[in-house]
């Protein structure tokens, strides 16, 4: 594509580096920003710079944070005995939105994936072991994607945690809420039968 100005071309190329944005969308965004008031465009630019320069990771759980300790870790009302281990910050957000979990988190920053060159040493696994051995955490929950990499990471951490004697569990895998049984794939269905839940009739 030919652009009428070098400034447009630069902006398009930078925007097109973002996930899910192609050259055409990038051009549309660039032209839109151009139509905005100078003030609005500056606000956008500043917010991106602040995001990159000021945001840090929580020293305890490695979640994105404004301070050295994030507001989940520093919240006194949360249960400090239960810890949920997740792949990424977006998983923390997803779980927080359920309002069902009141414990603490630990963000690994990825899953073990040799094909992408990611081994355990590149993840926040050692800090996790250290954190559990030095704190009052009694239960660890793995909330990973249901794939080979997620299972492997869970296996690996379980092995490492064994000497510490904490209770370890994994989020349930099974039929999504609202989905018909007949449309559930065989693997999920087989797994949900193996890991069935008991139902007790209340009086």
């Amino acid at each position: 594509m030919e652009y009428p100005s070098k400034a447009i071309e630069n902006a398009v190329n930078e925007l097109a580096n973002l996930p899910g944005i192609g050259k055409k969308t990038a051009l549309r965004l660039a032209l839109h920003i151009l139509k905005q008031t100078e003030e609005n465009a500056e606000k956008l630019g500043e917010s991106i710079i602040t995001l990159r320069k000021n945001i840090r990771y929580c020293d305890t759980c490695f979640n994105i944070s404004d301070e050295a300790t994030c507001n989940i870790c520093s919240n006194q009302r949360r249960n400090k005995e239960i810890l949920c281990v997740v792949e990424d910050t977006k998983d923390v957000i997803a779980l927080e939105n359920t309002h069902q979990f009141n414990g603490l988190y630990h963000v690994l920053g990825g899953l073990i994936n040799p094909l992408q060159g990611i081994g355990p040493s590149l993840l926040n696994i050692d800090p996790l072991i250290k954190r559990i051995s030095e704190s009052s955490i009694k239960e660890v929950i793995f909330a990973f994607s249901a794939n080979i990499e997620g299972d492997t990471t869970a296996f690996y951490i379980t092995k490492k945690l064994k000497p510490l004697g904490v209770k370890i569990s994994s989020i349930a895998r099974g039929i999504p809420v609202g989905l018909d049984l007949e449309f559930t794939d065989e693997v999920t269905l087989a797994r949900s039968i193996l890991n069935r839940t008991q139902i007790t009739a209340s009086e």
Partner: peptide, 27 residues
Amino acid sequence: AQRNALLKLMGEQRFFDKEQVEIWDTQ
């Protein structure tokens, strides 16, 4: 494929972590 990638990665970085290989074996 993951196990092979791990073996290759370790070979290139000149170390061998038995524990990591065995995790893939379990799977």
